[in-house]
């Protein structure tokens, strides 16, 4: 097992190096001269040089890359071009609300999606299976932002049950924080849950047709025992990968939900920075999101290795 862990960890290094190089190259790919654009038409040559230095775009491209990589490894992501605040600080401020959203939305999606998938997959063409088909059709037709706007309209505008916007830390004020996170988390989780349910259903239905399950029925095990103890553990192995891939949807969903419910957060920061061409902030945020994404996939791989011994031996 240890060998497997080390092997997977070393595989993550080139991926991180490659993607960070891609993030570095982003600024250099921009058509025209982004420095001159940022400085404006009437900027003095000194000002232009200052911005160029600030963006780390002076000197040869190799020198730039070396400096950039060493800065990043030292945790220095540069400063915002718009307000001079360090990118690290901006990310530390924007991170927690997004992490809270993920911490609520992700378990919610798992708790909603997997049981529904199990109910539908245990008995294909049963009432639960039809319910899942209906739900899938619904989730497919509504992109998360349309769903979010609909939730916002129903629960805060029409019924007035929940606040429409803003963020209050879950850890400082659990009650109010929860009230404000329910709708954004639902808008993200409902879409994710439909995909999870679909995959769980397919995986379970597949396992239910295997001989060992028939053997379990034959020796007289009850419904519950056959599905939950015999079939489900094997069916959940592929679901681990899907659950990790859904993390990408979680990021997308969070960006959109932050816009709908005017919450501060990483998505909000990235969107605003693209609009104001605040390149160092976008680069820093991208780098962090990529690192998180790689880490999640790594964890999924490890979980897969634990669940299925064949994988760690290969």
């Amino acid at each position: 097992m240890l060998g497997f862990v080390i092997r997977r960890l070393t595989q993550a290094v080139p991926v991180l190096l490659l993607t960070s190089t891609a993030v570095f190259l982003l600024l250099r790919l921009i058509p025209g001269d982004p420095v001159a654009d940022l400085a404006g038409e009437n900027a003095s040559p000194e000002r232009v040089e200052e911005i160029r230095r600030q963006l780390g775009m002076d000197g040869s491209i190799f020198a730039q890359y070396g400096r950039w990589l060493s800065d990043v490894l030292h945790g220095d992501l540069g400063r915002s071009v718009q307000n001079g605040v360090s990118v690290g600080r901006l990310l530390r401020l924007a991170g927690p609300p997004t992490v809270e959203l993920a911490l609520v939305a992700y378990p919610l999606a798992l708790l909603l999606g997997i049981p529904l998938g199990v109910l539908a997959g245990a008995r294909p063409r049963s009432r639960w299976d039809w319910a899942l088909s209906g739900y899938t059709a619904f989730a497919v037709a509504l992109p998360s932002f349309v769903l979010g706007v609909a939730l916002l309209w129903l629960f805060s505008v029409r019924l007035g049950w929940l606040p429409a916007s803003g963020h209050v830390s879950l850890f400082d004020h659990p009650g109010e924080g929860l009230r404000r996170i329910i709708l954004p988390a639902l808008s993200v989780a409902l879409v994710m849950a439909s995909a999870l349910a679909r995959y769980t259903r397919t995986a379970l239905a597949e396992v239910m047709r295997q001989d060992y399950v028939r053997t379990a029925w034959a020796k007289g095990a009850g419904d519950r025992r056959v599905v939950l103890r015999h079939a489900l553990p094997n069916a959940l192995v592929p679901v681990i990968t899907i659950a990790a891939l859904q993390f990408g949807h979680l990021l997308t969903g969070a960006v959109v939900a932050e816009r709908i419910f005017t919450r501060p957060g990483l998505g909000d920061l990235v969107v605003r920075s693209i609009q104001t061409r605040d390149y160092p902030v976008v680069q820093g945020a991208l780098l962090m999101l990529v690192a998180v994404f790689v880490a999640v996939n790594l964890l999924a791989d490890l979980a897969y290795g634990i669940a299925d011994p064949r994988i760690r031996r290969s």
Binding site: V23, L26, I30, P31, G248, T252, I274, L286, F293, N297
Partner: peptide, 17 residues
């Protein structure tokens, strides 16, 4: 390996919205 949104952000950074 990258989620679609991250690639979209990268493209929008280079080309502008």
């Amino acid at each position: 390996a990258m989620p679609g949104l991250l690639s979209a952000i990268a493209v929008l950074t280079v080309l502008g919205p």
